[in-house]
Design a protein around this nucleic acid. Structure first.
Lengths: 243, 243
DNA sequence: AGAGTCCTTCTCAGATTGAGTTTATCTCCA
DNA sequence: TGGAGATAAACTCAATCTGAGAAGGACTCT
């Protein structure tokens, strides 16, 4: 906010050229073990033909509502989506047309159907994050910030459960960590750790109907617990070489 | 950012009433072992007489530059200040005059002199964070977010060194954790831990000139190392009751 | 039926942690 | 000047946690 003094001293409509505030959403999901991000293809200049994060102007609504609205318009999804503010990008010149300050959001969703082009949805599609390069505007940096946030939050928050369905196996949960971190945690230790963190997951008492596709026993099913933070945390292997 | 489609579909100057973007800065420092925040007293309505975070309009500059400029205008301080983006607050109605989207920043500074009222500085002063209540606008929430971020960052980043001078003792560093967490870490274990984290601090080879004010031997002096993250982390005592 | 998969549990040595103790150095005050 | 009290730094030790591996089944496919 701004103090009255600054408001009076500084305010001159001509001194502050038109300025827009938008939201952009980094929506992540996992498909076939690979982390994907939701992108839309731009039809017009600038950056025509390039991929970009879905987003749009903020209306008379909260920023959170704007992000949720954009996400819904683009994908038709609403339920079971974790949404959080990521960071704000506002360098002059990041949009060649005018000064645009963009509040970036980060969303996590379980596997979703391909966006239907019903409604006003542009050509939205899921793209493996490794292929999501050369995005329009400064969206490469926005995506990078989102990925780093996601990797870090898996360590100390029960976020991974937002990527899987209502009921899930520990192996599925491990698949989330593998996809996001790009590294597979030790299966046995992961199992022990996940079960020992209070409130992370709770057993349903049921198991899967079948074993794994390539064999193996049925697995027990779990649902998300009520913990908001993981304690102790599940730390990434090799955060960096020691010494 | 915004796609061209959305830009064309949605853009109508009258549909989007005037909107301002500001930065507000939560500046923290430690004085006499107590965490303080920099506040300015508002002279005019709304919220006349109330305390508020320093801030102002974003000009033709990056958001980071705007935050740094506001901080410098308010306090005259520039060197050795750690500054990072905190979060963006944009609820309609958070400013009664117009829609104002505020990008909040978080700054950490070693002990600084009282802001001189030279220049255009308003009545800025350091206030113990526990006394910083009933702030103008939604600044209570902004401050709360800043405090929580600071507490969390002490765990896994070498941020504490931003609160002390160029050279410091381990006891001073422990004082930072005590002030921010409101809880004193075990002195012996803190000592061991801080020295064992690679890159956190490095010895200068010198000691203080005198012992502590109430006795005790001279302490060794250290300076900040080059680590960007602490690994392993210094976890807060009692993050919550286990089980 | 056999080969291969993999969920789940177990083992174990090494590292880390929390709590407390020890030693020596220094300041303040009588 | 001689304590009394404070504290930086190092050490001790038991309890816990961690990483790495292996074992036991239960299940899939061919």
């Amino acid at each position: 906010m701004v103090t009255e003094r600054e408001f009076l001293d500084g305010y001159d409509p001509r001194a502050y050229p038109a300025l827009a505030v938008t939201v952009d959403v980094v929506t992540l999901t996992i498909r076939d073990g690979v982390l994907h991000v939701l992108l839309v293809e731009r039809g017009e200049q600038p950056y025509a033909g390039r991929l970009a994060l879905p987003g749009g102007f903020v209306r008379e609504e909260t920023l959170d509502q704007a992000a949720l609205r954009e996400l819904a318009e683009e994908t038709g999804l609403l339920p079971r989506v974790h949404l959080e503010q990521l960071a704000t990008f506002g360098d002059p010149g990041r949009d060649p047309r005018m000064r645009v300050v963009s509040v970036a959001y980060l969303a996590f969703a379980p596997r979703l159907p391909d966006p239907t082009v019903g409604g006003d949805a542009a050509a939205a599609r899921w793209v493996p994050v490794d292929d999501a390069t050369d995005l329009a505007f400064d969206h490469d940096a926005v995506l990078a910030a989102g990925l780093e946030r996601a990797r870090a939050k898996l360590e100390y928050s029960p976020l991974a459960t937002a990527f899987v369905g209502e009921e899930f196996t520990i192996a599925q949960l491990r698949g989330v960590y593998t996809a996001v971190w790009g590294e597979e945690p030790h299966a046995g230790n992961f199992h022990r750790k996940v079960l020992s963190v209070p409130g992370f997951i709770e057993a349903t008492g049921t198991t899967t109907e079948r074993g794994g596709e390539r064999g193996g026993p049925r697995s027990k099913l779990y649902r998300a617990g009520d913990a908001r933070i993981l304690h102790p945390a599940l730390l990434r292997p090799t955060p960096e070489e020691r010494r």
